[in-house]
Simulated assay, not measured.
Amino acid sequence: MVHTWNERAHTALKGKTGMLLIWSFACSVLLEIGLMVDTTYYGLAIESVALTVLSLGGILFYIALYPVIVGYNWLILETVRGQTVRLSDVFAPFRHRYGKHLLATLLVMLFQVLWTLLLVVPGIVKYFSYAFTYFILRDEPELSALEAITKSRNLMDGRKWDAFKLILPMIPMFLIGLTLYIQLDLPILASWSLLLATALIRPLVVSRFAVLYEEARQEYDEQWNRSA
């Protein structure tokens, strides 16, 4: 089954991988702009009120831009569904219900961080539990952020191991970027190493989650119709 899902994801991205990689890198750079404004992120000491305000502004700017990841998930989902996509589709979450999409990204990040602080393994498990959240926001815009997260957990129930196996080939690339981020003494080079690794694997990971979501959604709808 995992092989079939991989094949479906590969087929959906065929001929579009280069474009999606470029767009993935563009999204990462866009988020990095907010971090670059934060002087503390690159190891620079804050020596004035102005720099403190600048750093705070950078953090807020980074957070405000984070729904671009929601848009990229939507773009990949539409690609898997064989629909025509444009770079402007990435910014759809900014144009419609921006507040809810921003809240969803913040809640997902918060829950993942809290579970990771508790123990690393629960944090990894919750990463998969919340993986469908942005797809659900695309298909069911009437749901709140918390409702989308809850539905993602329900749809992913019993599928987390399959989800892990789907992205297993991409994990070494991410670990290389993470290792460089931790080990390199130059903050800028370290940060961009992780950025590059994340940008390279994002379309591959999200497309596989999208394929898994399509099947989970179909099974959920069939069960709902039978019980109705």
Rank of each mutant, 00 (worst) to 15 (best):
L195I: 04
H96I: 07
V108R: 00
I171G: 01
A104K: 00
L166W: 07
V2L: 14
I46S: 09
Y213I: 12
T79F: 06
A210I: 06
A210G: 02
E140I: 02
M170E: 11
F209D: 10
S48M: 09
L143Q: 12
V80S: 09
V113Q: 06
D139V: 05
L114C: 03
W5H: 14
A145K: 05
F128G: 00
V49H: 09
I69H: 15
H10Q: 11
R138A: 15
I33G: 01
H96L: 09
I188V: 15
K14V: 04
P172V: 05
S144W: 12
N154K: 14
I167Y: 06
L168A: 15
F94L: 06
D38L: 06
I69N: 12
H96Q: 13
A190E: 06
R95M: 15
L180A: 13
F174T: 10
G177P: 03
T4C: 02
G177V: 08
E78T: 09
P93G: 14
W5N: 09
E147D: 14
F209Y: 15
K151Y: 03
A228S: 08
L168P: 05
G99M: 06
V211Q: 14
V49M: 11
V85L: 04
L143S: 13
D185H: 13
K126N: 10
L77F: 12
L20G: 11
L87K: 01
L102V: 12
E7H: 10
R81K: 15
N73P: 06
S48W: 11
A92C: 03
M156T: 00
A92L: 10
L107E: 10
P203S: 01
Y42K: 06
A199S: 11
I124S: 02
I167T: 11
R217C: 03
R153M: 10
H10E: 13
